[in-house]
Design a binder for these strands. Structure first.
Lengths: 189, 189
DNA sequence: TAATTTGCCTAAAGACTTTAGGCAAATGCA
DNA sequence: TGCATTTGCCTAAAGTCTTTAGGCAAATTA
């Protein structure tokens, strides 16, 4: 019987697809082996263990998200940049719920420092350049933006806003209005 | 050998403690059995299955959180109420990380509707009574508050804000200032 | 073509989940 | 108080997932 052509990259990609289909916490080395019609042990040459696999999927998701974010920011500024960037998060989570969940995986500090997570922080600061904030308020604002983006998307994904008026998309738009207004009028200490 | 005195309530409480000690996703029927020095199968008379156990822990956490929230709101209004309520979330997550993670568990709609989650929504609206918002802006604001509270706490817990200046507690305070300012000046559609 | 490396395999042990069926302690009733 | 019933925890067993060790054959290199 021939070889299946496994490698770390393909496993990671397939793991990401699996996550989107069945949920990130259902991503298992066994399920992945099944998907490649290969014995479980075979995967352990390409992936250290289950945690390693999950971490790789998380890093992939962070990368994709950063890439989309960069594309969204190109040529935009101010509120336009703010909403475009926020939409990247929301849309990505809707398109790829498993990957988005993966991006939330707690990474150990070194891994996190080497991840695309740092790019995300830089892009947030780039958005804030369109507003008049100086340190430390810029950092406070970065943290707040991250909280709103992540918090909203996460609550929306877990069904918190569904089946109740007004439509979640409308709230999202109004929250963007509110953030923009807030950043233009950030309260003094 | 005598009986251990197991029942659903004790198992749920012990499960919550276990979650705080080792993390919510490490909460397992086996680990819980070990903790009571009892055979695994014995737990299945008190708890339907692993998912049932986790759901019960989640409901317990939501209850505790709602109780603390109600206590914090008593006799407070305006920004005072806002920050007191927000602190409840943050403090609870720090004191009980496993329970807080449990509270984030995705519940099926009926369970969610019967949970203390609805109390949380009501309390948020109570806070907003101190500000001049009318529907649908009140709902948008409720969703935004929930997003900030959950988002900030969740990012903070996952280490996002540690090891970098300014101190996360300082950002938290300034975010509260910002939310208060925003709610007093909610932008018109 | 021979030697080496690489890739997937079989085998096996350990952990968690869940169901089925059993015995003894606790409880209820005459 | 004695007997019957219920309840609570047990043993047994099957299924899944994880992970390591060691093997054989295909692919690569010399």
């Amino acid at each position: 019987m021939g070889r299946a052509g496994l490698n770390t990259e393909r496993l990671t990609r397939a793991g990401a697809e699996l996550a989107d289909e069945v949920g990130f916490d259902q991503v298992t080395v066994s399920a992945l082996a099944r998907r490649f019609d290969v014995k479980v042990a075979s995967l352990y040459s390409h992936v250290k263990n289950s945690q390693d696999l999950r971490t790789r999927i998380a890093l992939l998701a962070l990368d994709e998200l950063a890439e989309r974010g960069a594309a969204a920011l190109a040529g935009r500024a101010g509120k336009d940049a703010l909403t475009a960037f926020a939409d990247v998060y929301r849309d990505y989570a809707r398109e790829h719920p498993g990957r988005y969940a993966a991006a939330q995986l707690r990474l150990d500090p070194e891994t996190a420092a080497a991840s695309a997570g740092v790019k995300h922080a830089r892009m947030m600061r780039a958005i804030l350049r369109g507003y008049d904030l100086t340190e430390p308020d810029e950092t406070h604002a970065v943290r707040m933006l991250g909280s709103v983006f992540h918090g909203y998307v996460s609550l929306e994904m877990s069904g918190g806003f569904s089946h109740s008026a007004p439509d979640s998309g409308e709230s999202w738009a109004r929250v963007m209005d509110a953030l923009d207004a807030l950043l233009r009028n950030w309260p003094a200490s």
